[in-house]
Nucleic acid binder design. Structure first.
Length: 493
RNA sequence: GGCAUCGUGGCCGAGUGGCUAGGCAAGGCUCUGCAAAAGCUUGUACAGCGGUUCGAAUCCGCUCGAUGCCUCCA
């Protein structure tokens, strides 16, 4: 029996504003679409947080036994620098600035994106489609919307008619906006603007002669609007209605609102059952964004080459830091917070490592079965990873007590504890052991074990000058010795 | 200006009517040749002001502050 049948997952649905029991469209199967990056520059840490949240969600759904089709797109066309009439495609702009073919820009930053995500131990999505690979599908959707009379063509561009759509649908229901408020608060319509109303958005944009990225269409050469690609690709791979649509909070309006409008206009019904939005990562209290310069690249964190943090941090530490906050909360990055997370992460990992070598007793002093369900309850409550981690630290405490001999654990419970810990730490949270089994670390541990032997002999002879010298000089190299009841172990910082 | 969200102990962060997470840091104790590590333990926080209630950090109102969206952004 798959796990999901015995666990009751609740998901916060941005559309209803409530936590709802998760019931997929087809039992046992989940379709999930997440808006991926626009590959016009290096992925920054804020981007990574959103994708990491959904990576965790993907992992937990799989862990529950669902067969998940996870689609995360690559936006390689159609994303304009701004909404003005002379709006330039982000990729095309970057290509012009760097004197590259647009697809060189796309290739370069797609590779960067994948490299960084791999370091963070992301699972690859089931399908990673590109906007440029689905131009035909996008054109087909535009045709349908035009036929329904909910879009209009002007000068080779096609715009979605928001006012007309709003007559029979409700535009703004996801972001909690009313069309009349939006109209009331809009700045003066630009005189050159060819749109009927500022709220209308582009489905297809005419390509000016100098525009390199262009495709033929019934309305002339041009390129698709940004919002359309997600509708085209989610429909193609997940159907007209699918279970989960995710993305960053900042995409709620207008991007996701427009997706709903496009789908409802084309198919006559709402496309998504559960809308999920991951919150922003801030730094120094401000949103991280490429446009403001308030951002840090993951690579700069891993190497320590940045002016914000005091030292380098491993990808798993950053991941742990992010998992300590709920995905719907704003999280603020700081040096102190990362330092605290690093210590917590190390303590957790050390406990996981010692788990296997614990001695067993006839009975257990803590109820592993109850604890295990508490872990599931935390995750079932809208993927509450901070609560899960709190429970994991409960287990850490018990593991250390058992190691010291203050508590006991039965052989069966030990197996259960080990399996559960490893499932949540590695499979669900996606953390990784550091320094596992490489040749270098094997050689290092051999050398350190030798020094530990020498130090023990010195201590036995009460030659504390020698024993302390070994300990202190190893410490200076970042190797910490720990004297326990069972002998001396070490950690590398 | 409009629409949202949020304001929790030294720091980071859960919780959303009574039982009041967790991590890091700090103090005390145990262990130790001394340390470190580990364990035990202490600290009683919810922006302010009103209101509802037997009881509110949690609900309502107002004030102040922060952030996000309203134009591209994960």
């Amino acid at each position: 029996m798959p796990l999901y049948q015995s666990q009751s997952l609740q998901i916060y649905n941005s559309l209803s504003g409530k936590k709802e029991p998760f019931e997929p469209l087809n039992e046992g199967y989940v379709g999930m679409y997440v808006c991926g990056p626009t590959v016009y520059s290096n992925v920054h840490l804020g981007n990574c947080r959103t994708f990491m949240s959904f990576d965790m969600i993907f992992r937990y759904l799989r862990h529950l036994g669902y067969k998940v089709r996870y689609v995360r797109n690559i936006t390689d066309a159609g994303h304009l620098v701004d909404d003005a009439e002379d709006g330039e495609d982000k990729i095309a702009k970057k290509a012009r600035l760097e004197k590259l073919e647009p697809m060189e820009v796309v290739q370069r930053y797609t590779v960067d994106f994948h490299t960084i995500l791999e370091k963070f131990n992301f699972l690859p999505p089931s399908i990673e489609p590109t906007a440029t690979g689905h131009i035909i599908e996008q054109i087909e959707i535009i045709k349908v919307i035009l036929e329904k009379g909910l879009a209009y063509e002007i000068n080779g561009s096609v715009y979605f008619d928001v006012a007309k759509f709003n007559e029979h649908h409700s535009y703004g229901k996801l972001s909690g906006r009313k069309l009349e408020d939006m109209i009331a608060n809009t700045r003066e319509l630009n005189a050159q603007d060819e749109k009927k109303s500022p709220q209308d958005f582009a489905l297809w944009k005419k390509a000016e002669p100098q525009h390199i990225m262009r495709w033929p269409s019934p309305w002339g050469d041009g390129f698709p609007g940004w919002h359309l690609e997600c509708t085209a690709m989610s429909t193609k791979y997940l159907g007209e209605t699918f279970d989960i649509h995710g993305g960053g909070m900042d995409l709620k309006f207008p991007h996701h609102e427009c997706e709903i409008a496009q789908a409802e206009a084309s198919y006559g019904h709402s496309p998504v059952r559960y809308w999920m939005h991951a919150n922003m990562l801030t730094m120094n209290g401000k949103k991280m964004a490429k446009s403001t310069g308030n951002n840090i690249l993951p690579g700069e964190i891993f190497t320590g080459e940045n002016s914000i943090l005091s030292k380098a941090f491993a990808p798993s530490v950053v991941r742990f830091f992010m998992m300590q906050a709920h995905y719907t909360s704003i999280l603020d990055l700081s040096n102190d917070a990362l330092l605290a997370s690093e210590k917590g992460y190390n303590r957790l990992m050390e406990a996981v490592d010692t788990l296997g070598s614990l001695e067993t007793a006839s009975k257990s002093d803590f109820d592993v079965t109850v604890w295990k369900q508490q872990c599931y309850d935390a995750m079932n409550d809208d993927f509450n990873t901070p609560i899960l981690i709190a429970h994991l630290f409960e287990a850490v405490k018990h593991i250390n007590l058992i190691k010291e001999g203050s508590e006991g654990i039965s052989a069966t419970d030990k197996e259960l504890l080990k399996d559960t810990m490893e499932a949540f730490v590695f499979d669900v949270l996606g953390l990784e052991r550091k320094g596992d089994g490489t040749d270098d670390s094997n050689m290092l541990s051999g050398v350190v074990e030798l020094l530990i032997q020498l130090r023990m002999e010195a201590r036995a002879n009460k030659d504390f000058a020698t024993s302390d010298k070994i300990r202190d000089q190893l410490a200076a190299l970042g190797i910490q010795l720990k004297d326990g009841k069972e002998g001396t172990t070490f950690t590398v910082s």
